[in-house]
Amino acid sequence: MSIYNKINAGFSLGTNSPITSGIEDVIYIFNDEDVTLTYDTANPLIVTGLTAVGSAKIYKFEGTNNSFNTMSKLAKTQVGPRYTEEIDFNIAGLSVEVKAQLMAMGYGRVRAIAVNNYKDGNSAVELFGAVNGLIVTEAERNAADETLDGGYKIKLTNPDKLKEPYPPRAISIAPDNGTATYASTLAAIEALTV
């Protein structure tokens, strides 16, 4: 009996560039139907292109002091492994414009890009919600919360019963004539932002 996937390499923990926890204080969010994804033909874990549909944009959310966090967790199901993906972030504001964006992320599906603090690997930039998208599942505001000055705590995660078939995808986008780098990947994302 053959298994669906087989391991094909090993790894060791590096001492030259030890892993670093956390993500940068920026995430990029876009409506799941607004940007077409191109995958590496040899490895479905790598996104090699982001193409806006029409005049669609990617929206940049900036924070401070480690106000964003990502999480991916394996869940064993009857049809194989699935992954729950989450992004937690804080919004320092409560205007009607902020509330409108929260409502949109609660009803429509989005995808999100996070930039890891650890830049040595090929997953420095990751995409969350590649297949099933993400929705706001928690939007909590405590007016007396001094840590957020009365702002919102937000959680984006997969819709109920729609976990991802893969862990977060690496994004690695090459310039027109060259090899993909961290800088070329960020430049491609920034070119689509508002």
Rank of each mutant, 00 (worst) to 15 (best):
I46F: 06
I135R: 12
I46Y: 11
V35K: 02
N122K: 15
N31Q: 12
V131N: 15
E85M: 04
V125T: 14
G49C: 08
E97K: 10
L37C: 08
A139M: 09
A139N: 11
I154K: 03
P159E: 05
V125L: 14
E97R: 11
L127Y: 04
D120F: 13
Y118K: 11
E97V: 12
Y39N: 01
L74W: 01
I91H: 02
V110I: 11
E138H: 02
G150M: 09
T64S: 13
Y118T: 13
Q101Y: 10
L45K: 07
E140N: 09
L156N: 02
A124D: 08
T51E: 08
T51H: 06
N142Y: 00
N117V: 10
K155L: 04
A143E: 02
T38L: 15
K57Y: 09
V110R: 11
L50Y: 05
E97F: 05
A112I: 08
L74H: 04
N65L: 02
N122V: 13
V53Q: 07
T48D: 10
T64C: 03
K99G: 05
D32L: 02
L45Q: 13
G129F: 12
K155Q: 06
I87N: 06
A42V: 06
T157Y: 02
L127W: 09
G151W: 10
I113F: 02
T157E: 11
Y83S: 01
N66W: 01
F89C: 05
Y83W: 15
V110D: 03
Q78T: 08
F89S: 01
V53K: 04
